[in-house]
Every structure is written in C-alpha cells, then in structure tokens.
Simulated assay, not measured.
Amino acid sequence: MIYDDITHKIIGCAMKVHSTLGNGFQEVIYQRALVIEMEKQGLGFKREMEMTIFYDGIDIGTRRVDFFVEEIIMVELKAIIELNDSNIAQARNYLEAYNLPVGLLINFGSRSMQHKRIYNTKHPDAKPQS
C-alpha cells in the first residue's frame, strides 16, 4: 500500500515512546512524547487539528484529530486497556468523513503497545496497488 513508509515511521515512533514510558499514563503524556519522536524522524504533522465533518455536503460539526501527519494520515491515540471494535469503527468513520486514505489507531494503555492501520476503502489511494 502507498503510505506504508510513513505509517512505519509513525509506528516506530510510537513503539519508542511506549518502550520508554510503558503503560499507565494519560493519553496527553503519550501525545507529547510522540511529538518529540516524530520531530526527530522529520515527519510533518499537526497536533489536535480541528477538522470539519460534512454530511451530504453540509457542515455538521468538527472533530479534533490527535495528529494529522504529512497532510494525509490521521493518527488517533488511546490509553486504554484494550482496543475494541468500537474504537476501530470510530477511526474508520473519521477516515471516511475526512476523505483520507489511511489512518493509525495507536493504544499506549496495554502492556504491549497496540496499533491498527485503518483503511478507507472508499478512497482510491487506499486500494492495493497492481
């Protein structure tokens, strides 16, 4: 998939944060540490970026994305015991609402860091390359 190189870098940064801090902190602590690691890797990002959600072309509200990386990848952070289907569905819904091809859902709250790549199957860039 395209964007794999960027998502690999982001996941590597998150792994470094988790191996250094472990689990048990609030999400904002991991968010601040991830800023440091992504800057070290030269990744361009916006933190807590407010994005508009449209329904049928009408602005129906906004949602803050934890990170918007390289102007194409949404990163949502969690600090919970275990990711569940609801977290994954929420991330997928955001991808579709923002019309982004790929996102990452990263959980720092478990003993081992969890991550999921989420694809917006309705976006042409998220389709497998031939």
Rank of each mutant, 00 (worst) to 15 (best):
E96V: 10
G109S: 05
Q90D: 13
E50R: 15
S86D: 02
G57Y: 08
I36N: 04
I118E: 06
A126I: 13
M38V: 08
T52F: 00
I106K: 03
E71W: 01
V35I: 15
L95M: 02
L100S: 06
V102H: 10
D56A: 11
N99E: 12
A91C: 12
E82W: 01
K46N: 07
Q114N: 13
N99T: 07
E50K: 15
I81G: 10
E96G: 05
L43I: 09
H115D: 07
T52V: 10
L100H: 08
L34T: 02
L105F: 09
N99L: 06
A97N: 01
G103N: 03
V35G: 06
D59F: 06
K122N: 14
H115K: 04
I36C: 01
E76F: 04
M74E: 06
K78A: 00
N93Y: 10
R111A: 15
K78N: 00
E70T: 07
G61E: 04
E39D: 11
T52P: 03
S110V: 11
G42C: 02
E82C: 03
V35L: 12
D59E: 14
N107T: 08
S86F: 02
G109D: 04
F45K: 12
V75E: 05
H115F: 08
S112G: 11
V75A: 03
D125C: 06
N99S: 12
H115Y: 10
T62E: 12
S86Q: 02
